[in-house]
Simulated assay, not measured.
Amino acid sequence: MGHNGFPGLQGRVIIVSGAGGGGIGTAVTRMVAEAGATVVAVSRSKENLGTHIEPLAAEGLPVIAVAADASTDDGIATVLAHARRAEGELYGLVNVAGGAAPATWMPATRVTRTDWRALFAQNLETMFFMSQAVAAELTTHRLPGSIVSISSISGMNTAPFHIAYGTAKAALVAATRTLAVELAQYDIRVNAIAPGVTETPASRAYVGEDPERDRRAIAMGRRGRPREQAGAVLFLLSELAGYITGQTLLVDGGLNLKWTHLGADHTSLFLEDDAFRAAITH
């Protein structure tokens, strides 16, 4: 993308919460910094920051690594303190912090109160209270802004055997819409993206390589890349999306478009007549 900047991001400070995992958050950090903004890159893990964020700063990108837990008030205060000291004016927030460990997959009948609360804290509370703090800072200083959060395709449709995660990600979409209405008068836009299956270190824990499966399941025939999620985030942060608020953009390669009874060629698995199948696909 180069260092010529992206509409409206030069000289602005953008916080990326959950920046250090080497997946979507890290890709967002790089792309936003390349677009001309100063990025306050937040992760609970100093080790992750060392592995994934410090090399970006070493390349000369305007990235500030901050070790803080975005799920606590103290962590949020630390992040805001760094944002105030950064060069430029606070403008944006990207809520990437969230996710779910493989052990969180289970039938709805087995989910405990502890499981449920942990996934809501990780995926919904972190997004809301970080957004609240950034919105308060922006409105106090009468600054415009843009907040983008990461939901999931699991929050847009169904999430069998992952009900707490899917419901938390759906709640994030609802919070995005309501925040958008309340903050519009202050020229602060609030949007989200809902990634489909994306090749990240986190997803590798339970999604292996299987090109044939990807062709069957996803209209575009492959999983997404972190950069492709970051591109949608950058668009929503920027002034190119200046009249868009309260929206959640599916970035899923058409995964949501394929019914479960569609095969690799997008025709129904129930069609037994190959001549008919050939006739309708050519």
Rank of each mutant, 00 (worst) to 15 (best):
R85D: 09
R85C: 00
R85A: 13
R85H: 07
A86F: 05
E87M: 02
E89S: 13
L90R: 10
Y91N: 09
Y91W: 10
Y91P: 08
Y91S: 02
G92P: 12
G92D: 05
G92M: 04
V94C: 06
V94D: 05
V94R: 09
V96F: 04
V96A: 02
A97W: 12
A97V: 11
A97N: 05
A97I: 10
G98N: 06
G98F: 14
G98L: 10
G99W: 06
G99E: 01
G99Y: 10
G99R: 07
G99I: 11
A101C: 01
P102W: 11
P102L: 08
P102M: 08
A103D: 15
A103V: 14
A103F: 12
T104A: 15
T104L: 11
W105K: 15
W105M: 13
M106R: 15
M106D: 11
P107M: 09
A108H: 09
T109K: 14
R110Q: 15
R110I: 00
R113D: 10
T114Q: 12
W116T: 00
R117S: 15
A118L: 04
A118M: 10
L119A: 04
L119E: 14
L119M: 11
F120A: 03
F120K: 00
F120P: 12
Q122C: 15
Q122G: 11
N123L: 14
L124A: 15
E125T: 15
T126W: 14
T126C: 15
T126A: 15
T126R: 12
M127T: 11
F128N: 08
F129C: 12
M130F: 10
M130S: 14
M130T: 14
M130E: 13
M130V: 12
S131K: 11
S131T: 07
Q132H: 08
Q132M: 04
A133N: 14
A135W: 00
A136G: 03
A136L: 05
E137S: 10
T140I: 00
R142H: 11
R142N: 06
L143M: 10
P144G: 04
P144M: 01
G145L: 01
G145V: 05
S146C: 10
S146N: 05
V148T: 12
S149I: 12
S149V: 11
I150R: 07
I150K: 06
I150Q: 06
S151P: 00
S151L: 13
S152N: 04
I153V: 06
I153L: 14
S154Y: 01
G155V: 03
M156T: 05
M156N: 04
M156V: 03
N157V: 00
N157R: 14
A159L: 02
P160T: 01
H162K: 09
H162W: 07
I163Y: 02
I163M: 12
I163K: 01
Y165M: 09
Y165V: 06
G166F: 10
G166S: 09
T167P: 08
T167W: 13
A168F: 11
A170N: 08
A170V: 06
L172A: 15
V173K: 08
V173R: 12
V173T: 13
A175P: 00
T176L: 09
T176S: 07
R177M: 07
L179G: 03
L179S: 05
A180L: 03
E182S: 10
E182T: 09
L183K: 02
A184P: 00
A184V: 11
A184T: 06
I188S: 02
I188Y: 06
I188M: 03
V190A: 01
V190S: 01
N191Y: 08
A192Y: 06
I193N: 00
